[in-house]
Amino acid sequence: MANLIISNVCSANCEFCFASSFLKKQDDHEKFMCLDTFMEYIGLLDRSAIDEVRLLGGEPTLHPLFADFVRIGQAAGKRITVFSNGLINEPALEALMDCPPDRCAVIINMNARIKKSQRERKAYVLHQLGERSIAGITVDSPVFPLDPLIQSILRNRMRKVIRMGLALPVYGTRNHNLHPKQYPAVAKAIVSESYKTAAAGIRIEPDCGFVRCMFSDEEFKALNRNGFCFGSYCSPIMDCCSNGEILHCFALSDLFSVRLEADSETDSIRKELTRQASVWRFGGIYPECEDCFFRRNEECCGGCLAAVMNRFLPVKAMSVCL
C-alpha cells in the first residue's frame, strides 16, 4: 500500500486535517505532482507487485491531469482508489465514472469542512458515483451522530461501509485532534451509533490509531455483533510526495521519510521507515500501555505513534554536581 499525494492543494478547510501543515510547506511550483514523478511511482508500484493506485492530496481531483492519471493507472491494470472531499469537477468525475465499479473506489470525507455553496455539488457527486463511493468520517469529537451519514449512504446507493478515522495529531504542529483521554467517550459513541449502522446493514471499518482499551469488554462484544471490524494498527502508510520524498505518514512528516530511488520497492521502503520509527515504538498513547495485556498479545498497537511521541518531554540538559 502506498498513497500518491498528487495535489498539494485542497478545496475544503478541515481543522482536523493532518495533511495541511505538510502540504502548506510545499513550494508553489510543486502544487501538483508532475507526470514524470507520477510515472516513477507507477514504476514503484509495478516493481512491488501492487495492483492499486491510491490518489490523495490535498484534494487529488483538483490535479489538472487527474483524469489522465486515472486512465494511466487503469491501463497499467491497477484498481483506482481516490480519497476526496467530494467536490469533484466534471472531467475528474467522468474519468471515475468510466472505471468499472469493481475497479474503482472513491472514499469521500463526509465531514469535510466545505462551504454551504459547495454542498449541492457534493450531493450531485455522491449521487453520480453511487456504488463507486465509500463514506469516510473523521471523528473529531466524542459526539457524532451518524444518522445523516446513514441516510446519505442509503439514498445514494453508496457501498454499505463507513471508513472511520480518528482525528489524529500531527507531531510538532497543532491541528484539531482528539486527545487519547477522549477515546473512551468516543468509544461509547461508536458503540451507540453502531446499533444504527447495523440496522441499516452498514459495517464500520476503523482507520489507523484505534486502541483496544478504549472499549470495555462489553462494548467490544456489542461492536463485533454490530459489524465493526476492529483493527489496531499504526505502521508506515508510505505517503509518496510530488518531490520524490516518501513519508511514514503525514502525522510524522517532519521525522521519518526516504527518497524514491530508481530501484526502490515498497517492502524496503517500509522496512526503512519502520526502522526509523522503531526507537519510539516501545510504549503507547497511555502510561499503562507499557504493561498492557492487549499490547503484549498484539491485539493492540498502542495507538498512533504521533500521539505516543506527543507524550515525550525534551530532556533538560544539565550538569549534576555531586
Partner: peptide, 10 residues
C-alpha cells in the same frame, strides 16, 4: 560530576 546532554527525550 555528570552532564546530561541535550537532544534526548523522555
Amino acid at each position: 560530576n555528570y552532564r546530561i546532554p541535550s537532544g534526548l527525550f523522555w
